[in-house]
Design a protein around this nucleic acid. Sequence first.
RNA 1: GGCUGUGUGGUCGAGUGGUGAGGCAGAAGCCUGCAAAGCUUCCGACGCGGGUUCGAGUCCCGCCACAGCCA
Length: 494
Amino acid sequence: MESELVIYNSLSRKKERFIPLLPGKVGMYVCGPTVYGDPHLGHARSAITFDTVYRYLTYLGYQVRYVRNITDVGHLEDEQAEQGEDKILKRARLEALEPMEVAQRYTNSYRKAMRSLNVTEPSIEPVASGHILEQIQIIKEILANGFAYEVEGSVYFDLHAYTHIYPYGQLTGRNIEEARNGSRNLSNQQEKKHPADFALWKKAGPEHLMKWESPWSWGFPGWHIECTAMSTKYLGLPFDIHGGGLDLKFPHHESEIAQSYAAFHQAPVNYWMHNNLVTLEGQKMAKSKGNFITLQELFSGDHFLLEHAYSPMTLRVLMLLAHYSSPLDFSNQALKAAESVYKKLMNGLALLPQLRSNEDQGSNEIDQEILTLCQRCKQEMDHDFNTASTISVLLELNSWMNKISKNDQLRPALATVEQLKNTYHAYVTNVLGLLPESQADERLASILDILINLRNKARQEKNYSLSDQIRAELANQGIQLLDSSLGEVQIKWE
RNA sequence: GGCUGUGUGGUCGAGUGGUGAGGCAGAAGCCUGCAAAGCUUCCGACGCGGGUUCGAGUCCCGCCACAGCCA
């Protein structure tokens, strides 16, 4: 397959042509959520970004194995300093639940939210607690290769030994000697040879409920090792694409790279991709900052910053309206704009079956314009998944579709119309993952037909008070009737 | 202080050195019983200062602001 796809690789800081390791196949790993709280807008951005990557690769014909993990082994509130309480454990204490109950509860709510956003389920969704043995195995490898040391039942990654052999900090431009100079001298870090060394395995204290047996102690794995274990288990080494939020670059992804070299003497990944963050009033939106809107709050409108409820598809459009690498500031105005774009795209979808073509196969200016726009959809997506540009092209196509459907003089050739229908439908639904919301069941639809017919009859008799009453009362139920100049009535659900 | 990003019209937000983004808001008109949708036109921008180039929003240097990570 000749790929024209270009991906911005965070590691090289360059746009690179995408060439998979195996022709026609792609292995992709994305850091999923730590399940200790309700899913929020930050989760949605990462999931939608990489869902779109997955969808587009699939659309291009690749067979994609998409692994997105669930972190259900708690890591600490201040991971770098290895201080604070285990996040899941803390939640369990607050809610009086078993830690695994917490993990299950928020795994469920995450999956539910992702379904509503039409985020495709990954091919494999491994949980960290189910891969303790694999993690222990890799820690053993790293110890055997001399890049880790054991102290009091805990195992730490030995950065000093590592940097003698391998470069460290390529992803985030860090160097270990600088870190040494200004590093904090915290009492609980006494075990470490170097303050920047990170835990591979931690001995569990008596308060720790989630713990496993290992050659070193009853304890739990460090945060970074789970991704190394699960990605290599299911995707091999190296694999094609590793994704995650910008906030995970350091220390998480940097450590993954180091662990891979330390255990297997090779780089884990060819292409690193990082989505930018969602900000709220210019600040990072994160649970740990108490500055966030959950997806449930957004969908119900139950948050003081929201003017009203916004649908999952509106959120999806909002996310796709910005390039994944740009910061996205969240506001009612931005949401309203997204809502409008979503409506337009869905109106276009409903319009597709009505498009008429010309029997003559003459190619005129309209045909050229439309065919060029169809090609541009692929060009824009090929250019580092530029969904914002793709949407603008689709809106231009939409504009043509409206003109064609309302003007009998404008009739492109049959082949052009077919191309337009296929492209528009594929990009809106398959690539961008946008679907019409709230479908009516058949019975309700037939009852609606009766009402619509009654209203049309009233309109023909110029009984506008009755026709407007029917329309107004349906609108109260969230069902909007939209008349068209051709006499057809469109139904819109809210 | 270090590293990595980001600065584009009233607002959100694309932009791959060569007169076009697109959405929202605003203005005018067309269509329509009205409304909605749609169509046409208008409105306007590249953080600041240098440089490279025939040509810079785009490349280079410096500065400023904001964000993230680290300290």
